[in-house]
Nucleic acid binder design. Sequence first.
DNA 1: CTGAAAGCGCTTACAG
DNA 2: CTGAAAGCGCTTACAG
Lengths: 354, 354
Amino acid sequence: MKKARVKAVPARTRGKRGPRPRNSVTLKMVAREAGVSASTASRIINRTVNVSEELRLAVEAAIAKFGFRPNAAARGLALGKTETIGVISQAMASPFYGEGLRGIESRLLRGGYAPLFMSGNWQEKEEVRCMEELITRGVDGIIMFTGCMNDVALKAYARKVPIVVTGRTLRARRLVSMQVDDQYGAMLAMRHLLDLGHRRIAFVTGFENHPDANERLVGYRNALAAAGIPYDPRLVVAGDFHEEGGMQAVYQLMDSNIGFTAMFCVNDETAYGAGLALFRKGMRVPEDISVVGFDDLPASTYRVPPLTSVRQSVQQLGECAAEAMLQLLAGRRPLIVLPPVELVVRESTGRAAG
Amino acid sequence: MKKARVKAVPARTRGKRGPRPRNSVTLKMVAREAGVSASTASRIINRTVNVSEELRLAVEAAIAKFGFRPNAAARGLALGKTETIGVISQAMASPFYGEGLRGIESRLLRGGYAPLFMSGNWQEKEEVRCMEELITRGVDGIIMFTGCMNDVALKAYARKVPIVVTGRTLRARRLVSMQVDDQYGAMLAMRHLLDLGHRRIAFVTGFENHPDANERLVGYRNALAAAGIPYDPRLVVAGDFHEEGGMQAVYQLMDSNIGFTAMFCVNDETAYGAGLALFRKGMRVPEDISVVGFDDLPASTYRVPPLTSVRQSVQQLGECAAEAMLQLLAGRRPLIVLPPVELVVRESTGRAAG
DNA sequence: CTGAAAGCGCTTACAG
DNA sequence: CTGAAAGCGCTTACAG
């Protein structure tokens, strides 16, 4: 009945028909060496069942002898999953994202998954390209480490693959979102400035309509209101989350001759740019103008002068996102609490000059 | 003869025995829809052969209709390659590596490969872990974006998988190395300082025995020699490639009371730290001390004051590394020329005070 | 040009 | 506890 199968004979020593040759050690070879079947070897490797101690030892010896590593593609095909998580960020080169990716990587690896990073470069179209590419590659889930893709599209993708997204709040099946408390962070920054006697405080925002920027602006306004200081829209200028935006903002502020003694920047990078522009204009920080950032990037500690900033541990945010993904994949509804934001006071802020 | 095969009947509508169900669209479904065999559909998709226009259209329509994406694991298994390249760097969060990874990513993606990033965190042991993990995942090649693993180990890995490594020079089969001209870069930096009248120039190095640091030190010494200035070992202090090392170096230099009017730092991050330490000590840059870095990270433009640095486009270095890998995989011996290093003069350097 | 079949290397339901 | 067999979804040598 089984006569057509001559597998026992060294089947592909000379290429029958089949495929191109491989060089790697296979499970079957290991099994043969250990004197067990491939099934058993597989089960031992995956700790999928209890076997007698001697078999386990034999298999382990064979594995060591051949330096066997299970073929990931074959496992992926058989199991229907790749143990790989796609991670979309905006720019790996940015200090902000770099920190976060590091957190994601370390948590994922500990959980037995590997991250597949791609960057969207702040463009919705690119993000879509990343999504498609990652899904095609068969990732088991996707972490979107902030992004500009619209909520609807994101929810649609969540139907194909589990998603965790940071920087926005969104509810959907197989989708978990997490957002740091931007408003509260902004309040902390403003309260600090207010306590130092500042009354004319500028705010440099990010791209318009970016959720983080919006939230921080709300915090800015609320703090002002709480202090009984009228909101002056001329003190709010647009930036771009980067140094360049911070520089331009300062120039615009100084050119339009609105008095101000402090500035709260939507993020640290913006504050760096503002710092340079202030320097060029001959203003001293903090003697003439106090500056506060947001994110507390590692580099902020080494700025001249060191930057006061609202700390949100981007690395921890990354870890939390990865943790959420792991739970999602395990079929649990993730319950993640983000570490609270806090203010780190350094030397870029001082008492109001005026 | 073939009676045991009842494939024509909807084989797995109710789970026979076999595996867990899948939901995705398969090639076979597409083929059936288009009225061709899976073989033909495969060939059309992979442009592996010419087929009649109508069949192509039919298949394309079916693909579009079902939203078919080839299963990456299955392709990988059949083809014996994953179209994924492992990338080992030291720390994604670092601005230096971030830049480079970005270059790698963009070039690889254009070439049809996706990068799988891992970071070694400056530890040989971790790098080995990354290597193992990547090989296990079946990457088609590995780019080591500088690393501390010893040459011998690296060569050994090159026998299992094609490797391109930056930051050192090494010859082996299936291994290509590329190194920027550190000596020349250091010469440029020193010549600039020398031209400004500096005679007492400190050098802050990196980890001891790191190839980049060594090369730059050689450049430093050669430049001194060429200018007829005796080498003073007390002016050379150890750093760690990070801000902290730069700070400590300045403290050490000032405490030991060796006179100096300029410092050349092994990289920009070191220069940032030095800048802060100088600030704390009440020294002005460049009025009292001139500072030059190496790498010209994007952030250097926005330092206060903007940093003079030796520019090596890390992003381009990344692109070159990826390009080399692509050629290696195509079976060609890569011939890559790195963009030359150049000095970017900004405001952290000025005429010697003394 | 096109299809049937074998094979990639693993996992697991089934049957001892 | 263990093995034989089927199946994951694709590619390609072989044979028209």
